[in-house]
């Protein structure tokens, strides 16, 4: 994470002074974006950079659902299965993905291409069902749309 420190320093300029720990979640997110996951060495680096105890970082890592300690597939397919999406076909999409990818939610395809996850509400209820692929929302997805989407992700 050391090469990201200049970026973190820039973030500090808009924060009240003396409260650097605010950067914990922003740093973790940025590190994950950079490396794909958060490594032990990153935690050590943050302990030193932010001056906070390691346990505080580990608590946060295990609390926030988007943060991960291990690498995942190239494409992270996160299917919302909350109320509105389920009312618009999310459960069928999940079954379709399980069938097509041959993995259960929480698993990665052996070729490392896809990781399938189910998630709770993504705030895309009006355009349900939604699948989040890495950062991007794919909304109003039909079965055919989903097939076409998978084709585009290599």
């Amino acid at each position: 994470m050391k090469h990201l420190i200049p970026e973190f320093e820039r973030l500090k300029t808009r924060l009240p002074p003396g409260h650097d720990a605010t950067l914990l979640v922003p740093c973790l997110r940025r590190i994950q974006e950079d490396r794909g996951f958060i490594d032990n060495s990153d935690i050590d680096g943050l302990v030193e950079y932010l001056g906070i105890p390691r346990i505080q970082i580990e608590e946060a890592l295990s609390f926030y659902g988007m943060l991960r300690r291990k690498p995942i597939g190239r494409w992270h397919l996160q299917v919302c299965r909350n109320v509105s999406c389920s009312m618009r076909g999310a459960e069928r999409l999940i079954d379709q993905l399980i069938g097509k990818l041959g993995v259960q939610p929480g698993e990665t395809t052996p070729d490392g291409r896809f990781t399938l996850s189910t998630v709770e509400c993504l705030g895309s209820c009006g355009t349900a069902p939604v699948v989040m692929v890495n950062e991007a929302y794919h909304e109003n997805l039909s079965a055919a749309d989903l097939d076409a989407l998978l084709e585009r992700l290599d």
């Binding site: 032990n40 935690i43 105890p53 390691r54 346990i55 505080q56 580990e58 608590e59 295990s62 609390f63």
Partner: peptide, 19 residues
């Protein structure tokens, strides 16, 4: 600062920091 509460909800566990 050895101990913490890791995970959340009813999966939460008292755990020591790694190492």
């Amino acid at each position: 600062n050895v101990l913490g509460l890791e995970h959340r909800g009813d999966s939460m566990l008292v755990r020591p920091a790694e190492g």
